[in-house]
Amino acid sequence: GSPLAQQIKNIHSFIHQAKAAGRMDEVRTLQENLHQLMHEYFQQ
């Protein structure tokens, strides 16, 4: 897949890990990143 698709997959797993660790501030930051990446992805 594209590097962007790979990045989106990575962030999904980072979010999963951050949630499991209870780091909600990190989850929020990652979700904002994910949102931006998704936006770029669909602009392609």
Results as ranks from 00 to 15, higher is better:
7 Q>F: 08
19 K>S: 06
27 V>T: 02
1 G>Q: 12
38 M>C: 13
32 E>C: 13
34 L>K: 00
19 K>P: 00
39 H>D: 09
35 H>Q: 09
2 S>A: 11
25 D>G: 06
25 D>I: 05
25 D>Y: 02
31 Q>H: 08
8 I>G: 00
22 G>W: 03
28 R>T: 06
19 K>C: 11
15 I>K: 00
35 H>P: 00
43 Q>W: 07
40 E>V: 06
24 M>H: 10
1 G>E: 13
42 F>P: 03
25 D>F: 03
22 G>Q: 04
29 T>G: 06
23 R>T: 02
3 P>E: 15
27 V>G: 01
11 I>S: 01
26 E>T: 06
39 H>Q: 11
41 Y>G: 03
7 Q>G: 02
8 I>R: 00
7 Q>W: 14
21 A>P: 01
17 Q>C: 15
4 L>R: 03
31 Q>V: 13
8 I>N: 00
13 S>E: 15
26 E>R: 06
44 Q>A: 11
3 P>W: 14
11 I>M: 10
33 N>P: 01
18 A>S: 03
36 Q>S: 09
17 Q>V: 09
41 Y>H: 05
26 E>S: 04
12 H>R: 12
21 A>Q: 09
43 Q>C: 15
38 M>V: 10
33 N>H: 15
37 L>G: 00
37 L>K: 03
28 R>S: 05
9 K>D: 04
16 H>P: 02
24 M>G: 04
9 K>S: 07
19 K>A: 09
44 Q>K: 10
15 I>P: 00
41 Y>I: 06
18 A>R: 01
17 Q>L: 12
22 G>R: 04
1 G>S: 12
26 E>P: 01
20 A>F: 01
3 P>S: 15
21 A>C: 08
19 K>H: 07
4 L>A: 04
15 I>M: 04
9 K>L: 07
30 L>D: 00
13 S>L: 10
23 R>F: 05
20 A>H: 06
44 Q>Y: 10
29 T>C: 15
16 H>R: 14
42 F>T: 06
11 I>Q: 02
40 E>A: 06
11 I>H: 02
12 H>T: 09
10 N>S: 11
41 Y>Q: 04
23 R>L: 09
14 F>C: 11
25 D>L: 05
2 S>C: 15
27 V>Q: 02
5 A>G: 08
29 T>R: 15
